[in-house]
Amino acid sequence: MDLTPTGATQTSATTRPGVTVSDADRPRLARHVRLTFSRTRQCQVLLHPETVVVLNGTGADILELCDGRHTVAEIVTELGTRYQSVPDDEVRQFLTRLVARRWLEVGDG
């Protein structure tokens, strides 16, 4: 679930105080962010103005489920069916970091 930004600029706001995600939140990509497959890199990337974030497989799987319909709890459950073990706290930390950077938005369940 590492985020590896490449490109001209990096977002300086890595955290916002008080930003957390709850099990009932329904995360979705912000309007200015796109998840797409990079043929050059042969992996999923997150496109943000002037930044390309290379995702590992787990990070891409999480973001594919961030469609505004799945709750955080449902995302964790779905990942549990795909992988042997899913550290719930790591998924929540990953989502919290993306919300703090304003790459994800959350709606209440």
Results as ranks from 00 to 15, higher is better:
57 G>C: 01
31 R>W: 03
34 R>N: 11
42 Q>P: 05
95 L>K: 06
38 S>I: 10
98 L>W: 05
63 L>I: 00
104 L>K: 13
29 L>F: 10
101 R>P: 05
44 Q>V: 02
90 E>A: 12
27 P>L: 07
38 S>H: 07
58 T>E: 05
1 M>V: 14
74 E>K: 07
18 G>N: 12
27 P>W: 08
40 T>H: 04
73 A>N: 07
31 R>G: 14
5 P>Y: 10
37 F>R: 09
21 V>K: 02
24 A>K: 02
14 T>Y: 13
68 G>I: 00
72 V>T: 11
14 T>L: 15
9 T>C: 06
62 I>F: 02
73 A>L: 10
83 Y>A: 04
39 R>P: 11
91 V>K: 04
37 F>L: 07
64 E>I: 04
63 L>K: 04
95 L>S: 12
80 G>A: 00
93 Q>S: 12
12 S>D: 14
84 Q>K: 09
55 L>H: 04
50 E>N: 09
97 R>A: 13
101 R>E: 14
27 P>K: 11
98 L>R: 07
45 V>S: 02
23 D>Y: 03
37 F>V: 14
18 G>I: 13
46 L>M: 06
12 S>E: 12
7 G>I: 05
102 R>K: 13
33 V>F: 04
3 L>M: 08
86 V>S: 00
75 I>C: 00
45 V>R: 02
66 C>L: 06
94 F>M: 10
35 L>R: 14
16 R>D: 12
6 T>L: 11
20 T>V: 14
56 N>M: 06
109 G>C: 00
82 R>I: 01
13 A>W: 10
1 M>W: 03
72 V>Y: 06
54 V>N: 03
30 A>M: 05
7 G>F: 11
26 R>E: 11
83 Y>M: 04
40 T>E: 13
41 R>P: 01
9 T>M: 11
42 Q>G: 07
103 W>C: 03
70 H>R: 13
48 H>Y: 06
76 V>H: 00
22 S>T: 14
36 T>R: 13
38 S>V: 08
48 H>M: 08
2 D>I: 12
106 V>G: 03
108 D>S: 09
80 G>K: 00
63 L>E: 01
75 I>G: 01
84 Q>N: 08
32 H>M: 10
55 L>Q: 04
23 D>W: 02
64 E>P: 00
36 T>S: 11
69 R>G: 01
39 R>I: 09
45 V>Y: 00
53 V>G: 04
50 E>C: 07
78 E>Q: 08
53 V>R: 01
40 T>S: 10
27 P>Y: 09
91 V>W: 03
41 R>T: 04
30 A>I: 05
